[in-house]
């Protein structure tokens, strides 16, 4: 079966620095894949290559079998490859509902309609409200983004992404910068996402990874060090040694249950 998202020998160099080095990943439909790695491993660059912010020097990216290596960001979104942002990137002056409505309207091709009232498009509003409900934001749907907590903003990010009907969803450190109490709400929401969407999560926090991932890849120095089941990866000596020396050791093993 064709994978939802597949990369072959993806490379990106900045000057003399190989930031992404022959990365090959495969996400089947419905994947719950986490990408971990120390700071500077090239995780963010990889996301930028996948989402089209940057162009790969060499290698290929296939989305459901179609080559999107040189497609624009907009084109990738239309084809079902959607990302969220490490730092929330929303319409801050608009309400939660309006944010999600914008995405729904764009996805349903309604944004070219110039003469029908948006407020009378019950279909679009109901779809937006259903997604907001799904992420547990219903009570705040009329509040502006600038008025809600950061953790909720992350949820709105995901709501906007979901409105675009993704086949593949890239979650770029969704838990970064939010209190742990809210992290668990966020993960609950991620767990309720439609099972057929393939999700690639870039994440530092091992608690989050353990709860979310069915498969983990470790990126070090731009290369995939290993890919495997979460417990395999987390018990690997090689992976441990990569994180050693960075204060990460404690954080890393924190997610492993006591034997």
């Amino acid at each position: 079966m064709t994978a939802a998202l597949e990369t072959f020998d993806l490379c990106k160099t900045f000057g003399a620095l190989k930031v992404v080095d022959r990365v090959s990943l495969r996400l089947p439909q419905g994947a719950r894949h986490a990408l971990i790695g120390p700071n500077g491993a090239g995780k963010t660059t990889l996301v930028q290559l996948l989402s089209g912010v940057l162009r790969a020097d060499s290698g290929r990216i296939l989305l459901a079998g179609a080559d999107i290596t040189t497609s624009s960001q907009q084109r990738r979104v239309k084809q079902g490859l959607v990302r969220t942002f490490q730092v929330t990137n929303l319409f801050r002056g608009l309400s939660v509902l309006e944010n999600v409505f914008l995405a729904v309207s764009e996805r349903q091709g309604a944004s070219r309609q110039m003469f029908a009232a948006a407020g009378r498009r019950r279909d679009l509003i109901e779809r937006a409200e259903a997604i907001i409900e799904q992420l547990g934001l219903a009570g705040d749907r009329h509040r502006r983004i600038s008025e809600i907590a950061y953790g909720q903003q992350r949820l709105v990010e995901i709501a906007v992404a979901l409105s675009l009907d993704p086949k593949v969803l890239l979650l770029d450190e969704p838990a970064a910068g939010i209190p742990s109490r809210e992290t668990s709400l966020l993960l609950d929401a991620v767990e309720r996402l439609p099972p057929d969407i393939a999700i690639l999560m870039i994440e530092h926090d091992m608690h989050v990874v353990r709860r979310f991932a069915r498969e983990v890849s470790v990126l070090v120095g731009g290369r995939i060090l290993m890919t495997g089941l979460p417990h395999e990866v987390m018990s690997s000596q090689e992976v441990h040694s990569v994180y050693l020396g960075q204060a990460g050791q404690k954080r890393f093993t924190a997610g492993v249950p006591h034997v």
Binding site: V77, N89, F91, L94, E98, L102, E106, L164
Partner: peptide, 18 residues
């Protein structure tokens, strides 16, 4: 509504495929 989105955050509109 899309115009309002562009006024608020042009780059983000592009990323929802607008």
């Amino acid at each position: 509504v899309a115009l309002q989105g562009i006024r608020e955050n042009r780059a983000r509109m592009r990323l929802i495929g607008s």
